[in-house]
């Protein structure tokens, strides 16, 4: 039986490239694609794939929050991160959330295949550059302990809202996207700003970029 894969990445050209790589292997089938985390969660719920290939930097809902959501609904979902970035925060947060593998977009097609097969078979997979990040972190005595930072004080729902606000989405649109009232959005925003001790939208945006919640690209 072939391995069924869903790819979640906001760059369609990258998804095309991935499809080209996967098409060469009979045992792997790309059964669904999505351009952001929110769509991705729907596709995963519908297709129930063996492996979810997830990008990290995505507009709307980033890969870290999308992974958390998928894993809180079903801790057996096998997520393989495929990102251009290898910063320590991403790596630690994602493994903490429960993803099974992490490779970089610069990886050759063969490595992507190896990673998918490993993760589908219940193993973990990291590429050498991600191993460097983890080993360095461990050697420095961090032992995968990021320490509590301001962002940890936010709930999953607050982080989700923070991304949308930091992408300039209006309160009205956010309310529609999250299926809550405008009043709820306002209350949640005030709660975020109080917890972080931030009083302006501009500072909130910079905070979200520093934490990798949103990106300069969108």
């Amino acid at each position: 039986m072939s391995i069924r894969v869903v790819a979640i990445d906001d760059h369609s050209v990258f998804r095309e490239g991935l499809r080209l790589v996967l098409d060469q292997y009979e045992d792997i089938e790309l059964v669904g694609e999505a351009g952001n985390g929110r769509e991705g969660i729907e596709v995963v719920a519908r297709e129930k794939p063996d492996v979810v290939i997830m990008d990290v930097n995505m507009p709307g809902l980033n890969g870290i929050e999308a992974s958390r959501k998928l894993l809180s609904a079903d801790s057996d979902v096998k997520i393989l991160i495929l990102s251009a970035y290898s910063n320590r925060r991403f790596v630690t947060e994602l493994f903490r959330a429960g993803v099974r593998g992490y490779i970089l977009k610069e990886s050759a097609g063969e490595e992507v295949i190896r990673a998918i097969i490993a993760v589908a078979g219940g193993d973990s997979y990291i590429c050498p550059k991600i191993a460097n990040v983890i080993i360095k972190d461990y050697a420095e005595g961090g032992g995968i302990d990021l320490g509590k930072t301001a962002i940890d004080s936010l709930t999953i729902k607050e982080r989700e809202l923070l991304q949308l606000l930091a992408e300039g989405i209006s309160t009205k649109e956010v309310a529609v996207l999250l299926s809550v009232s405008i009043k709820t959005v306002d209350a949640r925003r005030r709660s975020i700003m109080t917890k972080l001790g931030i009083s302006s939208m501009a500072k909130l945006t910079k905070f979200a970029i520093r934490e990798g919640i949103t990106s300069l690209e969108f």
Binding site: V13, E16, L20, G109
Partner: peptide, 11 residues
């Protein structure tokens, strides 16, 4: 990136 090149080629 190999995969981006592949994607461009396909497109």
């Amino acid at each position: 990136h190999e995969m981006i090149r592949g994607g461009l080629r396909t497109i």
